Simulated scan of single mutants.
Amino acid sequence: MDLNAVHTFVAAAAAGSFQDAAAELAVTQQAVSKRVAALEQDLGVRLFHRSPRGTELTIDGQAFLPHARELLRVAERAAASVRPGSRALRVDVIASRIAPSGLLREFHRAHPDVELDVVHLHTVDDAVAALRAGTIDASFRAVLAPGRGLPEEIATAHVLDEPHDLLTGPGHALANARSVTLAGLAGHRIWIPGSAPGTEWGAYYDDLCAAFGLTIEGTGPNFGSDALLDVIADTPGLATLAGARTRLVWPAGHDLRRVPVHDPVPVYPHSLIWHRDNPHPALRTLRSHLAAIPDARPEGATWAPDWARR
């Protein structure tokens, strides 16, 4: 059903004549007549009695009028649900405890009027596909892994270089160290479950191992950060790497230790990616908020893979 014709019918019913409806709609009287005639043909009934004095609704027109008004209300609600600025800004972050989630919470506190819809997609390929399809507005990701450049329509902006800490249980050989060098981690077992091939974080840790002779194991199912912390607390020979801004909470009995890593400091590059044609006004607000964050890079030399360097 042509909603433009339905709108014209409702206007003509309210005005009492095609001429007055044409003036209200800023179209010709002939256009009003054609639209109403097309609607009548579509419905198979006459909606108006026409006379030199004007128009009057037929019985069928009276029956159709409340439904026509409801059709227009439903159409407006449907359009408003997707109109830029009327729907929530949908942002992808990999997990709820990592640094970008914290940045998104800070954005929400600074802009409580912006409605957010947070989703968790697995890989950067999933995020790029969702951006191209329009099912998300933005995604926090590392710069793409080697050989997989961003499509031309996907824009990116660097947000944060996050240093890594070594996370150990109380019985680990490095538990009481004030800091540790990257070279000093060689020979120690580091466990990061979920570091899967084909992900940007998997590529990051593969390059870190290759550059400094480290052993990072990604074996076993990934039951989440709580299960990981339980294992680290109870296994003296096992440690993991955690972002310095990653929010981790554990029971007091775990007595876990965060040991800063330096010479150089391994930093994980967080970026925001979005579709260049996305018109959502809150996306510009998010980008401006992130751009205003001070660039708190760690002192001294840092390391990131070649594909992740600014």
Rank of each mutant, 00 (worst) to 15 (best):
H270V: 14
A244T: 10
V45L: 11
E76M: 07
Y204A: 00
A301I: 11
S96N: 11
L72A: 02
V93M: 08
D113M: 04
A14L: 12
F107M: 06
D42R: 14
H289I: 01
L283F: 02
L167N: 08
L214P: 05
P221V: 15
P251R: 05
A21K: 01
V249G: 07
G134A: 13
V124N: 10
L131T: 07
T168E: 14
L43T: 06
D230V: 01
P264D: 05
P281E: 05
V27W: 00
H289M: 01
A173S: 15
A79N: 09
L283I: 02
V249A: 15
A203E: 00
T8G: 02
G44H: 13
P269H: 09
R73L: 01
L290P: 00
A301P: 09
V180L: 02
A145S: 14
P170Y: 10
L272F: 08
P163Y: 01
E162L: 01
R287G: 04
V159C: 04
G184W: 03
A21P: 00
T181A: 10
L229C: 12
L39R: 00
V143S: 15
Q62E: 15
E152K: 11
A292K: 12
R109I: 11
T215A: 14
C209P: 00
L185Y: 02
A173T: 14
D126E: 15
E217S: 15
A5G: 06
L238G: 00
I59A: 11
T302A: 08
I232D: 05
R276I: 08
A38K: 15
H122G: 06
H111S: 06
D42F: 10
L283H: 03
V231G: 04
P151R: 12
V119F: 07
V114I: 11
L248H: 07
P100H: 07
D126N: 15
V10E: 00
D137F: 09
T168Q: 09
R309G: 11
A301C: 12
G220E: 06
T168W: 04
L167S: 10
A304I: 04
R90Y: 06
D125N: 13
P193W: 00
H280N: 05
K34C: 05
L174W: 03
L57M: 10
E217V: 13
A177K: 06
A21F: 00
L272T: 03
A38M: 12
I136D: 03
L286W: 02
H270P: 07
A110V: 14
A157Q: 15
V159H: 00
D117Y: 03
H122R: 14
L116R: 00
N222P: 02
R87G: 15
L43Y: 02
A157F: 09
R148T: 09
F18C: 02
I98G: 00
E152V: 13
